[in-house]
Design a protein around this nucleic acid. Structure first.
Lengths: 243, 243
DNA sequence: AAGTGGTCTAGACCACATA
DNA sequence: ATGTGGTCTAGACCACTTG
């Protein structure tokens, strides 16, 4: 039986949640792994099953775990259905969400601009990988992306053959660099398209463009990727419920 | 002791939640009212306190109730901090969110366009109130609004003196028409400004514009207001977290 | 001091998934 | 049949707010 660590003034279920969170952060439990059952966790940490349950439910709410009745509790594989991209109309074709084809236009080592360096916590003089990518559906360009990676964590990504890079980058980061993207922050703004972007996306210059900036982080909050994506605004439609 | 109604195959806490929800929908409990304590509710409906608690927690999660340690459980007053408007930069001035001044340009009875009539569930030939409103900060126009109300529920709104209509409409709907706005759906798109909108907002024609459509509903889901708002896109900035 | 919600226990029984 | 999570009980004690 492990002891619960941390501030003893905190509720047990919160201290237990923190202990379980650490198991994931420190990669002892990986995405897809099954956790011990409620009763086992309760016994292991010396709390009642109801208390263990409360901790598990909280971690589900946070998006770290997933529970399946009769099967068990699992470390959730982050997926990015919540990404603002899902609100581009072309993304969902015939009701089914499709991953667009992707074409890498550039992949080089480079010095990141100041705001990217700050976001990725790159020290002065620290290096980065810069990538330019175009995403297409039925051969038609729909999103242009500019991507920056911190060189120290992602260096091996430079060695990957282009043929081995599919339309999804995060599984590659995971397999090649051992870095799991656990969450991200996104922000959305609108601009009038610059000539170069307009050419890439085959729009007239000045057409409204949605700009989505994303900072992806690991389980321990380490910044792993900075990405700026641009798409035609007339194909964007966001819907939400408020109370 | 009341009996729990509804499908007996459903869990008790869900049937209890539904019963409590009805108390709010049917206006026996109004926003701001305090509910009986956990123990009283448990005794009233013949369940264990833990079960009553589970129902209450669910209703808090849904946004219907609010609990305060040591004080009690209350019917929440809906507020619209989650509105997409909050992502217009001018909305928050010096960190404090301000309600902009508002100027009503038009308020008349009119036949609603088809999509508005459908949203507001107005029958063929049913009437509506149409309003045009401009919202300003420091005398500068920032958002132009087009508003439609169903005549049968909101007729009395036509009689209110313009001086008695402040910058917030929902309290007026509540006091004058007895209709409480409990929630809303919003959707966001982008367009190039038409000449008339550009003139109202003092922009050059064709400048990118954020369009937010909102459908506001009562506790029983009755549509109460349809609203389309337009603001300059260069002042819009949306931020979100994804997992 | 009394009343409220928040935490916690030590179980029982049920519904679901899997071998 | 076994093991999992989901529901439920009947309390106890604690932390917070208010009269």
């Amino acid at each position: 039986m492990s002891a619960l660590s941390g501030d003893t003034r905190l509720p047990r279920y919160q201290r237990l949640a923190e202990a379980l969170r650490q198991e994931v952060v420190e990669r002892r439990w990986k995405p897809g792994d099954r956790l011990p059952s409620e009763n086992d966790i309760a016994a292991l940490y010396g709390v009642a099953t109801g208390t263990a349950r409360q901790a598990l439910v909280q971690l589900v709410k946070e998006g770290l775990l997933k529970r399946e009745h009769g099967r068990g509790t699992f470390v959730r594989r982050p997926n990015f259905d919540q990404s603002l991209f899902r609100f581009f109309r072309f993304w969902a074709k015939d009701g089914v969400r499709s991953v667009p084809e992707s074409r890498i236009l550039r992949r080089v080592m480079a010095a990141p601009p100041g705001h990217v360096a700050r976001s990725l916590r790159i020290e002065d003089g620290g290096g980065a990988i810069n990538m330019s990518r175009l995403r297409l559906i039925d051969g038609e360009p729909v999103v242009a992306e500019e991507i920056w990676l911190p060189l120290d964590l992602m260096e091996k990504f430079l060695d990957v053959a282009e043929a081995d890079i599919g339309p999804l980058l995060y599984p590659v980061y995971d397999e090649v660099c051992g870095q799991t993207v656990a969450r991200a922050e996104e922000s959305l703004t609108v601009e009038s398209s610059a000539p170069e972007t307009a050419r890439l996306l085959r729009l007239e210059a000045g057409a409204p463009i949605i700009v989505i900036d994303r900072l992806a982080r690991g389980y321990d909050d380490t910044p792993l990727e900075w990405r700026r994506s641009r798409g035609a605004a007339d194909r964007f439609h966001y819907h939400t419920e408020i109370r």
